[in-house]
């Protein structure tokens, strides 16, 4: 793994190398170089299995952290490649040409985070949220509680199981009256 990281470092600008386990490392790469790095790892370094494409919303920093997670089935090693993209007009180069399932991930991220992947197949088709017209719901600023209070209403006659409320009723029944 050390040798692979050294080789990557010679050709790509990588930072924040975190060795999580002997066979698991996380690195950060610039947005412009990310797809080239993934292609290099797949074609030259044997990371033939694409595991996961995920996003972390760092709203306080104004960035999305995209994570491409690759696996080398022969050497049994994993690498997570982070790349930061701006939350405003979030766009990333599509990687659907590398692995078929990436198009599905990109379609989901477009819907859930509003990140666009121009050129990715069916990226504009709704994946789970058919007819959704609010902000992308997995963004941190989307308040699930507020949304449910505005769109749904509590069932009448439903008793609360909140421990505080329950103990209050039990210990001070008169107070409520």
């Amino acid at each position: 793994m050390e040798q692979i990281l050294q080789d990557i470092g010679k050709q790509f600008k990588i930072t924040d190398i975190v060795k999580k386990r002997d066979n698991l490392n996380f690195i950060t790469c610039e947005k412009e170089q990310t797809i080239s790095l993934i292609t290099y790892l797949r074609d030259i370094k044997g990371f033939s299995h694409f595991v996961l494409l995920s996003v972390v919303d760092w709203i306080e920093d104004g960035v999305f952290q995209l994570v491409y997670f690759l696996n080398n089935p022969d050497k049994k090693i994993d690498i997570g490649i982070r790349t930061m993209i701006s939350r405003e007009n979030a766009t990333m180069t599509s990687a659907h040409h590398l692995w078929e399932q990436i198009a599905t991930y990109q379609r989901e991220l477009k819907e859930m985070y509003g990140i666009d992947f121009p050129g990715s197949p069916r990226v504009d088709e709704s994946f789970i949220l058919e007819g959704w017209d609010d902000i992308p719901p997995m963004r941190r600023e989307f308040d699930t509680k507020k949304y449910s209070e505005e769109n749904f209403f509590p069932r009448e006659g439903r008793e609360t199981n909140d421990p505080e409320e329950y103990m209050k009723k039990k210990l001070y029944p008169d107070e409520e009256k």
Partner: peptide
């Protein structure tokens, strides 16, 4: 087509 079961667990 999926979405018939979506409960937003990762968000929750």
């Amino acid at each position: 087509h999926v979405g018939y079961l979506h409960r937003g667990f990762e968000k929750l």
